[in-house]
Computed example of a mutant assay.
Amino acid sequence: MTTHLVTGAGSGIGAAVARTLLDRGDDVVLVARSDSRAEELRATYDGAEVLVADLAFPESVESLTPPGSLDSVVHAAGVVELGPVSTLSIEHWAAQLRVNVVAPAALTRVALPALRSARGTVVFVNSSAGLVAHPGWSAYAASKHGLRALADSLRSEEAAHGVRVSTVYPGRTATPMQQKVHAQEGKEYDAGDWIRPQTVADAIVRVVDLPRDATITDVTVRPAG
């Protein structure tokens, strides 16, 4: 039996990952931002353990007590707010950096003893914006470039402990976040144009399941069209 901790299970890629792992019989631990949200996740994912910490306030993860052994931690939670540097507020900058970079770093630190115990895998769900920054994407892309740096440093630091670190860079994926992005861009949204969340989740699970003789450091997933 393997045990996995997943953030962002409320929707999108995180939801697909959590469901895939739970349905195949693995133990799954989820992170909810509030007690009420935790109850919703428990109802949705029967059998999952749910911990409460608001990733918008990264210090809240320091009180979490994860299981003693974790085969993976999948960081799938994230927020986005588009806008040019000339108008994007400090609040929008800070929120994206807190949720997209600082919270994953803090949660990984809390989970490291359990990851080392299982020689587990950390998966950071990044974005194509973590590779290239386009106009209007400065804050989000900066947060995702920072997440990439976190993964690269962590990989070198934890190799001696047997902890593998992978980054997955999905292109546009049919999630509620993508719908919000289209609204901010003033574009029509058609989920059929983009990658299914399950497709990205399948790639993540394959990374987690990779035999111990190898590691996949980076995976880029792009829409086929």
Rank of each mutant, 00 (worst) to 15 (best):
R119K: 13
T65V: 11
V208K: 06
P211Y: 09
D26R: 12
P84W: 12
D193Q: 14
D209V: 10
I195V: 14
S86F: 06
Q178P: 03
F124G: 00
R119E: 11
A224K: 14
E91M: 01
G12I: 04
V123Q: 05
V50S: 08
A16R: 04
V122C: 03
F57T: 14
Q198Y: 04
P84Q: 07
G68N: 10
H161S: 15
V168F: 11
D202N: 13
G8H: 00
K180S: 11
M177D: 03
L150C: 01
S69M: 09
K144A: 03
W194A: 04
A174E: 01
G68R: 12
K187R: 14
R222A: 07
R24G: 05
R24L: 12
Q184R: 10
R37K: 12
R119H: 10
R164S: 04
G10Y: 05
G10W: 07
A174V: 08
V181D: 01
R24H: 11
P223L: 12
V101E: 04
W194E: 02
E158Y: 12
V208I: 15
D190E: 07
Q184A: 14
A15I: 00
G8M: 05
A18L: 03
P66K: 08
E91D: 12
A151G: 14
E158G: 09
A18H: 02
R109L: 06
I13W: 03
P176Q: 10
T167K: 03
D46C: 11
G171L: 00
A95L: 08
G136R: 09
E188I: 05
L154E: 01
D26N: 13
T44L: 15
D71L: 01
G171M: 01
V181E: 14
V181M: 14
A95Q: 08
G192E: 11
D218N: 11
W93K: 04
V221I: 15
G136Y: 14
G78I: 12
A151I: 04
R33M: 00
V123S: 10
S89P: 05
P197D: 04
T121K: 01
R155L: 05
I13Y: 07
H75F: 13
H92P: 00
F124R: 06
R37I: 00
V123P: 03
G83K: 08
V28L: 06
V125C: 15
P113H: 15
E62V: 01
V132P: 00
S69R: 15
V61R: 00
G192I: 03
T65E: 12
A103Y: 10
H4I: 07
K180M: 09
L30K: 08
A139G: 08
V168N: 07
S36D: 10
G78V: 07
R116L: 02
V101C: 13
A76F: 04
R24C: 10
E91N: 10
A118F: 09
V74D: 01
A94W: 05
A191D: 00
L210Y: 06
R196W: 04
Y45R: 10
A129C: 13
A191Y: 09
L112E: 11
T121R: 14
R196E: 14
E157P: 05
V52L: 02
L30T: 01
V29K: 01
A174H: 04
D209E: 15
V221D: 02
